[in-house]
Amino acid sequence: MSERYVLRSSAIASRLLGGEMMVMSATDSTFFTLNEVATTIWQAADGHTPLSEIVTKSVCRAFEVEPETALQDAQSFIDKLSGHGILLVSDQPLELQPAGSPEAA
């Protein structure tokens, strides 16, 4: 499988609350609560770090989980969030679009 890169959309509002990330889509006001594992992936989703590296370096180290299982869960998680447009996924590195730019909305 080719490498995947993930980037937080700038068309969202988000804040960490008690260790869990609260994410709200600016396009349809849908709210998401990310658990601690998902929050770790979310925070590392900088568009440049491959997903496999996020899983091995951030998730597996923090949560004592097997890399294969963690990667499967991470794939499922990013597919779900990308479907709502709050996480961007590509097989190429992604550049952050600041809020207010035409691509951000």
């Binding site: 509002a13 709200m24 600016a26 396009t27 809020a99 207010g100 035409p102 951000a104 909305a105």
Partner: peptide, 9 residues
Amino acid sequence: ERLLRLGVE
């Protein structure tokens, strides 16, 4: 248009 681009809720 700018308010939309800025993602005002």
